[in-house]
Computed example of a mutant assay.
Amino acid sequence: MPTPPVSPEPIEIAEDPEMPVLATRRKTGVAALARTAALALLAALALAGLGAAPAHAADGDVTWTVRTASNSYGADRSSFGYAVNPGGRLKDAMVVANRGKAPLDLAVYTADGFTTGTGQLDLLTRDKKSVGIGAWVQADRERVVIQPGKSVEVPFAVTIPDNATPGDYAGGILTSLTQATTAEGINVDRRLGIRIKLRVSGALKPSLAVEDLHVAYAGTSNPFGRGDATVTYRIHNTGNAILSAQQAVSITGPFGWLRADARDVAAPPELLPGESWAVTVPVHGVAPTVRLAATVTLTPLLTDASGSTTSLKPVSATASGWAVPWTLSVLAVVLVAAVVGGPLLARRSRDRRRRREDARVREAVEQALREQETPAR
Rank of each mutant, 00 (worst) to 15 (best):
G274L: 01
V286Q: 05
P254I: 12
E270T: 13
W257H: 11
R259N: 07
P288W: 03
E275T: 05
V265L: 07
D261E: 15
D261F: 05
I251Q: 01
V286S: 02
V281A: 06
V283K: 05
R259G: 03
P269C: 02
L292D: 01
P288V: 10
T289E: 12
L271T: 12
P254V: 11
V283P: 10
A248S: 14
A262W: 08
A287I: 03
A267I: 00
G285H: 02
D264K: 14
F255K: 13
L258I: 07
E275S: 03
A248R: 15
A248T: 14
D261R: 10
E275G: 08
L292T: 04
W257M: 14
P254A: 14
W277G: 10
P273W: 14
R263D: 15
F255H: 14
L292P: 09
T289K: 00
Q247E: 15
R291E: 09
P269L: 04
S250R: 14
L272D: 01
T252W: 02
G285C: 09
P288R: 03
L271G: 13
W257K: 15
G253W: 00
P282Q: 08
P269S: 00
L272N: 10
S276G: 08
G253F: 03
G253P: 08
L271F: 11
P282F: 12
H284Y: 12
P288Y: 02
T289F: 04
A262T: 11
R291M: 07
R291G: 02
P254K: 11
V281I: 13
D261K: 11
P273I: 14
V283W: 10
V286G: 01
V283L: 11
A266P: 13
V283T: 09
G253H: 03
V290L: 09
Q247H: 14
R291H: 05
A260C: 02
L271R: 08
L272R: 13
P254W: 02
A266E: 14
L292S: 00
T280D: 04
A287H: 09
V279D: 07
S276W: 00
P288D: 05
P273A: 12
V279L: 01
P268H: 02
R263W: 00
E275W: 08
T252C: 02
P268W: 00
P268F: 03
R291P: 00
V286K: 06
V265K: 08
S276L: 02
V290C: 00
V265I: 05
G253T: 02
A278Q: 12
W277T: 10
S250A: 15
A267K: 15
V279C: 08
P268Q: 05
T280M: 12
G274W: 01
P254N: 09
E270S: 15
G274T: 03
A287G: 05
G285Y: 06
L292Q: 04
A287W: 12
T252P: 01
A287K: 13
D261V: 09
I251R: 00
A260P: 09
Q247P: 00
V279A: 06
F255I: 10
G274N: 07
G253Q: 04
W277I: 10
H284Q: 14
W257C: 09
L258D: 12
S276N: 04
A267T: 11
A287Q: 04
Q247T: 15
A267C: 03
V265W: 07
L271P: 11
